[in-house]
Amino acid sequence: METDILKPKRKFSLVRALREDSAFQGIALISPTAIYMLILIILPMILVAVLSFMTRGTYGNVVYKFNFQNYVRLIDPIYLRILLYSLGVGLATMVFTILIGYPLAYFIARSPVRKRSLYLFLILLPFWTNFIIRIYAWIMILRTQGLLNTVLLNLGLIKVPLDILYTPAAVLIGMVYEFLPFMVLPLYTSLEKIENAQLEAAADLGARPLRAFLRVTLPLSVPGMIAGSILVFIPAMGMFVVPDLMGGAKTVLVGNVIRNQFLTSRDWPFGAAASMVLMILTLAFTLYYTRKAGFGEELLV
């Protein structure tokens, strides 16, 4: 089509571009975000990647000499064990939040419409207190002279106080508590979307409730489960506060290693390398699962 022949080239005008050029409007709207993210997300990430190939100087400074030494150091069995342990804690947190969160999300999705938002709100409400405060509450419950042991001893159920605090079990309790809403919300979103007609169709075609659940409800809620898993697994992998406060010296996760390298040992290049490994692991996890099922809507309710 000969459309732009003989059309005089008009002088560029900002006002006209803003009014008439939709691509220009889009760019104008996105640019504050793009610039902000470039400076405070992308550049720092690149910096960490660069740092991970540098060396620590004698006084905790960074010596700009390219090498792979930090990554080689990470292959050490100590760090590999920590990495595997973190992976285990992340996966265990994920599994437990699904086991607890799925029935809850299902319950909310099956409740009368007017009650659903109340139930969801009740899940979120405690999380408006501070993260550290909630962990502190769990410490009060779980420690040797804590509430749990007091109750159990008084009831005569146990003779000797249980040592739960400062064990991996305590870390798991704290993590599951902390991340449960991130699993319940996306699960609810995908469960709520399932039309009753589909379940009725399954019943009509002869599926008993359990089979209908396994063959219809469960597969349809997979996107929510995947979004929830990503939202739980990633922060759980990098968590260092919960292991610090509830795990004692015995429980060290990758997050603790990174934190220590940056703030205690002041070996930034090594900490950066550990960060890179953690980031690559979580990214691989995310990509693998998002390929399986698109996520987006479920990620944020």
Partner: peptide, 8 residues
């Protein structure tokens, strides 16, 4: 959203 907080 998908990077561990500690890394950020």
């Amino acid at each position: 959203v998908i990077i561990p907080e500690v890394v950020m």
